[in-house]
């Protein structure tokens, strides 16, 4: 009796979160699946069309482009962000005066809205904006057209994401560095390992769980990129910066195609699930706890 009561109390504690979980996460996952078999414009009654949406996706060029763009974006931004973050974390690890102020500043881009950042950078990337002015100053007479070029627009957006993400990841990695036991360094030093070797054999393995966390979250985040695209390019020029969430948003809320957009969402959902699963499986090979 008392036991049941205590279980009841535990579930009462959990109730708000559980309801939120059920109503806004679990049910939507099922409902999204259901919608993906429907033709529905969000206004008139929906009709069941079987696998049509998925078949259409197979031949949808824009979907393929946005998927490819997204993968390209992930493969570039995640590794570069992580590498730069590790370097910055090492730099922050020097115990010099005022280092805390630096840390506060580095973290700054991360607290600002992606939309605002996109707007600022879009202005910076213009032909006579600050970025190209600096490039010209350094003798680069013909700087890239950035957002006006199909080859440079997506890299420009990647640059912004990296710029925004490095400070955040560096702070996490910096905290991770504090957790690497000091005696391991001392032992390595006794064995005659130089600083680089210490980094490879002590720091990186010690840091690997944190790096793993950053990679997993970074990959998930990279599939959610939307605000920067909306602010900087609206998917253009052409379709060169069209990414998944942007395409889903347009399909649902600009083209009134909720069913088709749900099918796309489901693919996005499965992609992230699979990638995360693979990462969890792979972590045994390189992450040391």
């Amino acid at each position: 009796m008392a036991k049941w009561k205590s279980y009841g109390i535990a579930y009462l504690f959990l109730a708000p979160s559980l309801i939120g979980l059920a109503v806004f996460v679990l049910y939507p996952i099922l409902y999204s699946f259901y919608l993906s078999f429907m033709k529905w414009d969000g206004l008139t009654p929906m009709s069941f069309i079987g696998l049509s949406n998925y078949k259409d996706l197979w031949t949808d060029e824009t979907f393929k482009i946005s998927l490819t763009n997204n993968l390209y974006y992930t493969l570039v931004t995640v590794p570069i962000t992580i590498v730069l973050s590790i370097l910055l974390a090492l730099l922050m690890n020097y115990k010099v005066r005022g280092i805390q102020t630096f840390r506060v500043l580095y973290f700054f881009p991360n607290i600002t809205a992606s939309l605002a950042i996109g707007i600022i950078w879009a202005a910076m990337f213009t032909q006579y904006g600050p970025l190209n002015t600096i490039l010209r100053f350094f003798g680069y007479a013909d700087p890239p057209a950035w957002l006006a070029s199909t080859t440079m627009a997506l890299p420009a957006i990647m640059l912004v994401s990296i710029w925004k993400g490095v400070g955040y990841n560096a702070v996490i990695l910096f905290a991770g560095l504090q957790g690497v036991p000091r005696h391991l360094y001392e032992a390595a030093e006794l064995d005659g390992a130089n600083r680089f070797k210490q980094f490879i054999y002590v720091t990186l393995p010690g840091l690997s769980p944190v790096i793993f966390f950053c990679v997993v979250m970074g990959v998930i985040g990279s599939f959610q990129v939307f605000d920067t695209v909306m602010a900087m390019t609206q998917g253009g020029p052409g379709r060169s910066t069209n990414v998944l969430v942007f395409h889903i948003y347009n399909t649902a809320f600009q083209n009134y195609n909720f069913g088709y957009a749900s099918a796309m969402s489901y693919i996005l959902f499965v992609i992230i699930l699979v990638i995360t699963f693979i990462q969890l499986k792979m972590q045994k090979r390189w992450v040391t706890y």
């Binding site: 806004f24 996460v25 049910y27 999204s32 599939f223 889903i248 909720f258 969402s265 992230i272």
Partner: peptide, 21 residues
Amino acid sequence: LLFLATMMIPGQAIMIPQFTI
């Protein structure tokens, strides 16, 4: 674990049903 797993779900993948609900 279920709670943790939901951290992996991008909100955008379920934005349409959320809107409908």
